[in-house]
Design a protein around this nucleic acid. Structure first.
Lengths: 193, 193
DNA sequence: ACCATGTTAGTGAACACTAACAAAGATAAT
DNA sequence: ATTATCTTTGTTAGTGTTCACTAACATGGT
């Protein structure tokens, strides 16, 4: 899909956004960081917008294991746990990525980018929601709460934890805090009857 | 604190960021939108960075009622409910504001801006966490969960709901969905013994 | 007379992007 | 095996546009 050079460009672009925001993302900065000239960069992407589209595509590729990890389990609550921990593991191992993935506003200047981001976000939520419905059907998860709301609680908490982690400069252990957060969420939503 | 003109500049800047992202925020665009020339704008702010600082200060001013609404109640859970609903009401009535307030990445290009945003975020969380601790002390809120985690659940869910609302183009009723979300959160964390 | 707030006209720097050319590796004909 | 050709990927030097910001001057209210 992406050539080696294209991947390098995308990863460098993510790094630059992570460091100094989308305003720091210029063709010159990317090429300087890589060690090539500006026109060389245009051999790999038609224009700057295509690089941004590439970043969003790259999001899906990197996050794919988090979705695949769900299918290795049968229990709904265990599927969500895998989704949760897989997210934390991936983001913990890729700081630049973590700083950019939940910052939708970076891609607000183009309609097609906004759409792509929206599709990604809805896909996550639909997946989690459907698993919660399964969990409620087999009485593993409380049925008193709406599945949509539970999905918002889970994804919202996860996102907020990651944002706090990146904004604080990684001062705490993401996976450790995430484990505690998930255990408390689990205690709240799992049916203990 | 801010003159009429300064307020207008800040509100216009927020509108422009909401519409097309931080990359669309230029002195020319702000002044054109207001109907003055660029040098006129520099009569009211020394430079662009000061406008961004102004936006963050403005955040605190607009959100102040949400914190004040908490003090009108004694019951901890009712205080959090007021915080929650007050947030929703304010943001529902100010779409541009809602689009920008949780987009921290817009202010990532300057160290002082990042610090200000961090302080704001921590202030909210500390406040909510302390009220939760009070609720746990009087057995109104489950003590099985960590107060920090509950605060992350509440604020994370609230933030995510608002982000979904703005990203979807306000296709759903923010305050209506927020009411349901809060009721489900409340059912989860309130002690019914 | 003064001060706040506006204007016109302009600065150099940075922006995304391009034309023209160069070199190096792979492919293919001799 | 050597040579010729093509393709890929790079370079230098440059385009016009937009950026944040400024100097000098104008106007209108107190």
């Amino acid at each position: 899909m992406f050539s080696k050079r294209q991947q390098q460009i995308i990863e460098t672009a993510i790094k630059l956004i992570a460091e100094k925001g989308i305003q720091n993302l210029t063709i010159k900065n990317i090429s300087k960081e890589i060690g090539i000239t500006e026109p060389a960069l245009y051999r790999h992407f038609d224009n700057k917008l295509e690089i941004l589209k590439g970043i969003i595509q790259y999001f899906s590729i990197i996050m794919k294991p988090a979705f695949e990890s769900m299918q290795k389990e049968n229990q709904p609550i265990q599927q969500i746990e895998n989704f949760f921990f897989s997210h934390l593991r991936i983001l913990n191992n890729n700081y630049n990525f973590a700083k950019v993935i939940f910052s939708e506003s970076n891609f607000q200047n183009d309609e097609t980018l906004i759409n792509s981001i929206n599709i990604m976000m809805n896909k996550s939520q639909q997946k989690i929601k459907s698993v919660i419905l399964q969990g409620q059907a087999i009485n593993e998860i409380h049925s008193e709460q709406n599945a949509l709301n539970i999905s918002r609680i889970i994804i919202g908490s996860l996102r907020f934890l990651v944002i706090q982690w990146t904004m604080s400069g990684m001062v705490f252990d993401l996976e450790g805090e995430g484990l505690q957060l998930w255990n408390d969420i689990k205690k709240l939503i799992v049916n203990t009857n």
